[in-house]
Amino acid sequence: MANLADVSSQVSTRAAESAPPKKRVLSDTWYSVLLITPAMIFIFIFALFPLGYAINVSLRYADLTSPQGISDYVGLENYRFALNDNIFWASVQRTLTFGVAAVAIEMVLGIAIAFLLNEIKWLKGLARSLFILPLAASPVAVGLIWRYMYHPEFGVYNGILASLGLPEQNWLGSTALAMPSVIIFDVWQWTPFVALIVLAGLQALPKEPFEAARLDKASTWRILRTLTFPMLAPVLTLVFVLRAIDAVRLYDAVFSLTQGGPGQATEVVTYYLYRLGLRFFRLDQSSAMSLLFLYAVVVFTALLMRRFMRNIAERARRA
């Protein structure tokens, strides 16, 4: 445990400098502030500084391909452009389409698999461990593997379809199928996430209410509706929030599967920002759009996570 040793040595040098043990030099409050300071400095500098930088650039004219580079202030011009840019709004719409479809399918499938895993008798542990695997794989690496599997000529999916006598598909090459193909990939990678967490929630449910309900000869559907789902609600909400936030940030899968194509069929917000900022080097416009995107994510997170956060604060206060 090299890390532990590092922690101890760091803390003890700090102890020698500023807070000799036993003598109360610092109140608990200042001690707690001292402990979070290194982490907070790091987070503040490297999270807020880029943010400030982005705000600054978004108020200027900044085209890295032009000789001036980052140049004069233009007021809110870039925001005006962003809010009226149809390509931007189309990409926002694609992100929403992707998010709603992928998260909905993942929730339904994941919950179903969790119930299945909870019911089976043999090799439950093995099945559960194997389900972890897609989650751990680098999205870009497995995304590229899926691109090979989706290949219209040499891909295994078309091979299977052909051997079943079904028509072969141009998975990533057709405008209509490209987005569903990306969604299928996401569902493959993240359904296990939902399944595992819901399973953990199911296993943590108290036994007594269910036994009582069974003695009352309540129907399975009734038990599900009045006991299981209400009791699972916090876990389901959490899974949903985490998946939704992640789906909005989708980038790796689009990069490895379609690069936003064909045409712009799979160009989600993140990919459009990448293209505008780091391919066309319109830093001003892409910064303004990035900030709008960030704003939306922060509002979304804050609204969804408020209760979750309050619980954490409560728990901390009680401890």
Binding site: L76, Y79, L83, N84, L292
Partner: peptide
């Protein structure tokens, strides 16, 4: 501010 720019200014 955003609503202003998007809808009122147009």
């Amino acid at each position: 501010g955003l609503v202003w720019i998007r809808f009122l200014e147009s």
